[in-house]
């Protein structure tokens, strides 16, 4: 009997179960994912990746659902990754973004995957980028990642997108709040959702001012547009899509390659970090060593400094280290 068809072949042949299982492996840190990725990595890059973030309740899922409808009307296929937080206490998660997208479930041109942020120590960013790669390889034209913009890991996730939409709405804090949260810095397009609600005009003006204050950039650089929409009523979706298209056009001439290259470099850096930490801490007994040193009364910087000096001292072609090791 012939061997079972390889999962990568199944992915390429349009098998949605292969998409689902590869994402499961990516989430679990299963080495089978890494092996599969090396087989399909060279064939990805054609999907446009849009990150959607913003505070809870801003209407992100509703907007994503509307974007998916618009893409489908234009005969484009869509892969959606919806990230929700895990409980830091139990590790469990309630993932409810599908509720607002459920009408899309029976559409073969749409694939929706919910993902819990889990411990977020690099794991979320890793699994989310991997999931996008899988959906890209499957052949979706558009890939949308939706996440609550609350922490560094979520920030890393959306930063990995080609175009980042930050969704805000009136009544959930003013433009200053948005600036403080650092969300504005990650935005390529600012979307004011629920634009029919009181306070929307004010929020738009605030955001436009905030963007202007930040845009002391050389000519030819991207200026973040502020776009109003009411996703719940299906209004203004065209304007959001037009802004994404404009950003996409702006990224032509090598800018996209640079942006994606940076993203991949960050990904490798995180993978090395994660691997090193796990190897040193759990494979070489540094967890026990640091516990012992601390117990004997040593200060944390001294313990870390000693460990770093030891590790760095063993590296081939030792260079300078920029860590704050005590001397």
């Amino acid at each position: 009997m012939e061997a079972k068809q390889n999962i990568v072949e199944r992915l390429r042949s349009g098998d949605r179960r292969a998409v689902a299982r590869l994402i499961t492996w990516a989430e679990a840190g299963d080495p089978r994912f890494a092996r599969a990725l090396s087989m399909f990595y060279s064939s990805i890059g054609s999907a446009w990746r849009v990150g959607v973030t913003g505070p809870p309740g801003a209407g992100k899922s509703t907007l994503v659902n509307e974007l998916a409808i618009a893409h489908r009307a234009a005969q484009k296929t869509v892969g959606i990754l919806a990230v929700d937080p895990s409980s830091p206490f139990t590790g469990g998660a309630l993932l409810g973004d599908r509720i607002r997208m459920e009408d899309r479930t029976s559409d073969p041109g749409v694939f929706i995957r919910s993902m819990a942020s889990r411990d977020s120590h690099g794991g979320l960013a890793r699994a989310a980028i991997d999931a996008c790669d899988v959906m890209d390889a499957y052949g979706f034209d558009e890939v949308i990642v939706e996440t609550v913009g609350v922490g560094q890991a979520e920030y890393d996730v959306v930063s990995a997108a080609d175009t980042v939409l930050v969704v805000l709405c009136p009544g959930a804090g003013d433009g200053i709040q948005a600036m403080k949260s650092g969300l504005l810095e990650v935005a390529d397009v600012l979307v004011v959702n629920k634009s029919d609600m009181p306070g929307a005009d004010r929020l738009i003006v605030d955001l436009e001012e905030a963007v202007e204050l930040r845009s002391r950039k050389p000519a030819g650089e991207w200026t973040v547009p502020v776009v109003a929409c009411s996703a719940g009523r299906g209004q203004g979706i065209d304007a959001v899509l037009a802004a994404v298209e404009a950003h996409r056009a702006h990224l032509a001439d090598g800018r996209l390659e640079a942006r994606r290259g940076e993203m991949r470099e960050g990904q490798v850096r995180r993978l090395v970090h994660e691997g090193l930490e796990s190897e040193l801490w759990h494979g070489h007994g540094y967890a026990e060593r640091s516990a012992e040193a601390l117990e004997s009364g040593a200060a944390p910087y001294d313990v870390a400094g000693e460990i770093l000096a030891e590790i760095v001292g063993r590296l081939p072609g030792r260079g300078t280290t920029r860590t704050g090791a005590a001397t």
């Binding site: 469990g92 998660a93 409810g96 509720i99």
Partner: peptide, 18 residues
Amino acid sequence: RDSGMEVIYTGLHQTPEM
């Protein structure tokens, strides 16, 4: 969820296909 599982809730009025 509280027992540590990841729960996807899909809402009301689902068909078996969905």
